[in-house]
């Protein structure tokens, strides 16, 4: 998308305004760094913590990667089954709907007992968070393939479920799978703090935030890590959108602007 320069930098204005407002309120209204540290203090904290930040980000991304990969690997085949075969949907849907409302946090004891205090246990919590959005959006995609496209596939030689899924349903469902994955990534990332809260290692953004800074009442460090959590997620989402929306789903351009 090509925008005029003015529009391209529009986001910068409110961002700077919010940061200035924060600096002002923290410095002149609240005046208590334990309640709200100033933005400049937080930035300085990031500088102080620079040795920790990178390994913490990498560890969190490892947990995130384990969880997301697992969620995708389980959700996609299940979504094909549930979206394509009505009986599979009818059989499995109640189980899914019982499990879905259970918050990822509630799974922490299970994760510890089943898997122990390992990276995989943190990955498991993230898996729980990311799994359902990916599953539900994806099976919707497989379920809603227009009849006309399926029939076109049939008359052009796609005989049998396997070929119809491969050549017609899967490409049709791809945008839904992408949407589900994007939402799942968001939810999964939100679970990172919870997943690392119970101490699966000595690194990780959530681990550091909850196990170290919070107990020491280092609010400037806490907020610094909150900002980093947000920024990393933003980068991950941007990279995902770049590859998926610009490359893979070019044909969607005319449909959703």
């Amino acid at each position: 998308m090509r925008l005029p320069a003015k529009e391209k930098w529009l986001w910068l204005v409110p961002l700077i305004a919010v940061l200035l407002l924060w600096e002002f309120i923290a410095g002149y209204v609240i005046r208590d760094p334990l309640t709200l540290p100033r933005f400049s203090t937080v930035i300085f904290s990031i500088y102080i913590l620079r040795e920790l930040v990178i390994p913490d980000i990498l560890t969190s991304l490892l947990h995130f990667g384990i969880g997301l990969a697992l969620a995708f690997a389980v959700a996609l085949p299940l979504a094909i089954g549930m979206g394509w075969f009505r009986n599979v949907f009818k059989a499995i849907d109640p189980i899914i709907e019982i499990l879905r409302p259970i918050p990822p946090l509630a799974w922490i004891p299970v994760a510890i007992l089943w898997i122990g205090l390992t990276h995989s246990a943190a990955g498991f919590i993230i898996f729980i968070g990311a799994f359902f959005p990916i599953l539900i959006d994806s099976y919707t995609g497989f379920r809603d393939v227009p009849k006309i496209l399926l029939e076109t596939g049939k008359v052009l030689g796609c005989i049998g479920n396997k070929k119809l899924i491969k050549y017609v349903a899967f490409p049709y469902a791809l945008p839904s799978i992408a949407t589900g994955t994007r939402v799942g990534m968001g939810v999964g990332w939100m679970c990172v703090v919870a997943a690392e809260m119970f101490g699966v290692g000595n690194y990780g953004l959530g681990f550091r935030l909850f196990q170290k800074f919070y107990f020491l009442h280092q609010m400037d460090y806490v907020i610094a890590y909150m900002l980093i959590l947000g920024l990393v997620a933003l980068c991950v989402d941007r990279v995902f959108r770049y590859f998926v929306e610009e490359k893979l789903l070019k044909w969607k351009k005319g449909i959703v602007k």
């Binding site: 006309i148 008359v155 490409p171 044909w251």
Partner: peptide, 18 residues
């Protein structure tokens, strides 16, 4: 169905991703 009978539908039936 078989590709030895070509079919053109009334509705637009192109695969939008291709």
């Amino acid at each position: 169905p078989s590709p030895d009978r070509g079919m053109v539908f009334q509705e637009f039936s192109l695969f939008p991703w291709l």
